[in-house]
Amino acid sequence: MTGVCQDRVVVVTGAGRGIGRAHALAFAAEGARVVVNDVGVALDGSTTGEGPAADVVAEIEALGGEAVASTHDVADFAEARALVGTALERFGRLDVLVNNAGFVRDRMLVNLGEDEWDAVIRVHLKGHFAPLRHAAEHWRAETKAGRTPSARVVNTSSGAGLLGSVGQANYSAAKAGIAGLTVVAAAELARYGVTVNAIAPAARTRMTEEVFAADMARPESGFDAMAPENTSPLVVWLGSEASAHVTGRVFEVEGGRVSLAQGWRHGPAVDKGARWEPGELGPVVAELLEKAPEPEPVYGAS
């Protein structure tokens, strides 16, 4: 290990299992002190009474690292403030926020209930906003006090948020919102010494275990391309001081592959210089479509 995050204080949400757990362990292995946040819920967000955050803390401590467990609800505004406070009270500072918590309630759009929509939007999108809001407030105060931080935020979007996914309208909308939040936060928080990036990971977790089978290892190397641990090295690097020049970006991460996602961009245009009549626009739209590349297909679309 290189110690790229030596003594940095990191909050990882949804860190009791899967990708979040992998992030927490990877940060600890690089010398970070970690707040392991996980409220302990089932795949659909229902309460289980389990304490996975404490289990991950025990793993980190057994390896000689420092960590503290948090069971705060990241989508509750007051509890998100308390989560940030946990890092400050226990370790005296906050350097990195990794927003990762989430769950799924998949349903085709015509069957999607209001409660299923609200729950997924709440935990993913508000669950990113609330900790980010309170961390940003702290970093702004530090800057005003003459202690400009070298702070990092790493959000968790998804291929579903970048391209869409059939049967996941709520999840896709939330993850697309996270990508949008990332670029806005990057622009607003740069003055306070904060970078904000996001990853769109593909890995085998409770949410994807039926999609990414355990036998996807490369036979010649034994490399399990879908292991959640593969997503963590980039997150740790983005959380380090070495990444100060990178902000407002979304990276796709799968196995040993890292790619930079290209979001919405201004494309072909036709300017009449005056208001269009509705009947004029058919040929205009046809011309624009002819000039533009075909969009990437939605996941699961036939």
Rank of each mutant, 00 (worst) to 15 (best):
T71R: 12
N37M: 04
T195W: 09
G49N: 09
L162C: 09
A213H: 15
A160S: 15
G255E: 02
V270K: 11
V253M: 00
A67W: 02
G127A: 13
P149T: 05
G127R: 12
S165Q: 15
E116H: 11
K144M: 14
G127N: 12
A225I: 14
N230F: 04
W139D: 01
A145I: 12
A145E: 11
M207E: 12
D95K: 01
D106W: 02
H134I: 10
R275G: 11
K126M: 14
A244G: 00
A54V: 00
E220K: 14
A169P: 06
T47A: 13
A214D: 15
S150M: 11
L281H: 13
Q262W: 02
L63T: 06
K175S: 07
F77W: 11
G102I: 02
H124C: 14
E280C: 12
G161S: 06
D38N: 02
R81W: 08
N155R: 10
A286T: 14
A82S: 10
R107K: 13
A269Q: 10
A187S: 05
K272C: 05
D7V: 03
V246Y: 05
F77A: 13
A225F: 12
S302T: 14
V285D: 08
A217G: 14
A22Y: 05
A141K: 13
R8L: 02
H23T: 03
N197V: 11
A136Y: 11
L109A: 07
R105M: 04
A78C: 05
D76S: 08
V250K: 02
V68E: 03
S157Y: 11
H134N: 11
A58E: 08
S70N: 01
G18N: 01
V258W: 01
G279F: 09
A202N: 15
A274R: 14
T208V: 04
V285L: 15
R122V: 06
T71N: 08
W237I: 02
G239P: 05
P131E: 07
S150C: 12
K144V: 14
S243K: 05
M108L: 04
S232L: 00
S302N: 13
A53N: 01
V235G: 04
L125F: 10
L83G: 09
A176W: 08
G16V: 06
V196C: 07
L83E: 02
A225R: 15
V35G: 07
A58W: 03
V258N: 00
A202E: 14
G222F: 06
R218K: 13
A75C: 00
D38W: 06
I121C: 06
